[in-house]
Simulated assay, not measured.
Amino acid sequence: MITVYGIKNCDTVKKALKWLAANNIEHKLHDYRVEGLDANFLVQAESQFGWQALVNKRSTTWRNLDDNLKKTLDKSTALQVLAEQPTLIKRPIILQDGIALIGFDEKEYAQALTA
């Protein structure tokens, strides 16, 4: 079973979940707004994608961050801010069984998840 990390009311997460269902891929959503987020998950995601890719600069959370924080953001600060404000994390994320996907791209999902 694939675990999709994200937030249930995110349109991009909804698209990914709809695609998974349409392709009969067993999955579950880990809504980190409701269920929280393990710090180890962030470390693993950062090592796979890089901290810059994890930060959703198109989000309302990003726009509401202090400008000085945005300018001085680095790896350690980013991981701390992402842990405190998970809505800042780009989503969805699938990170298991050798599969690493961030965001939703139908072609990437098809290539990674269908044989």
Rank of each mutant, 00 (worst) to 15 (best):
Y109C: 08
L101D: 09
K14M: 07
W19C: 04
A39N: 09
A112G: 12
W62A: 00
K57A: 09
I99A: 10
V55E: 07
V81A: 07
D38Q: 10
Y32E: 01
N23M: 04
Q96K: 13
G6H: 01
D31W: 00
Y109L: 09
T114K: 14
I99K: 14
L82D: 03
W19H: 07
H27D: 02
A112E: 14
R58F: 00
D74K: 12
K15R: 15
T61N: 02
R91M: 02
K15V: 02
S76P: 01
N68W: 08
G6E: 03
Q48C: 12
A100T: 13
K15N: 11
T72R: 13
K28T: 14
K70E: 07
Q48Y: 08
H30G: 02
Q52A: 09
T114F: 08
I93G: 04
I94E: 03
F49A: 04
A53C: 04
G98K: 09
K70V: 10
F49L: 01
P92G: 10
A39S: 12
N56A: 02
V43M: 10
A112V: 11
L82F: 03
S76K: 14
T61Y: 04
R33A: 07
G6S: 06
V34I: 13
L17A: 01
Q44H: 15
L82G: 00
V43Q: 14
L79M: 03
N68K: 14
P86R: 01
L101C: 11
D11V: 12
Q96V: 11
G98Q: 11
T3W: 11
H27T: 03
Y5A: 00
D105V: 12
I25G: 04
I94H: 00
I102N: 05
I93S: 05
L73A: 05
F104K: 08
V81G: 04
I102T: 09
L73S: 06
Q80E: 15
Y32P: 02
L37C: 05
Q111C: 13
A100W: 12
I102R: 07
H30E: 00
E46M: 06
K70P: 08
L65D: 05
L20I: 02
K18E: 11
H27F: 08
V4F: 04
E106T: 15
W19I: 02
N64G: 13
R33T: 06
A22K: 09
N9H: 13
L82V: 01
N9C: 12
T61C: 06
Q44R: 15
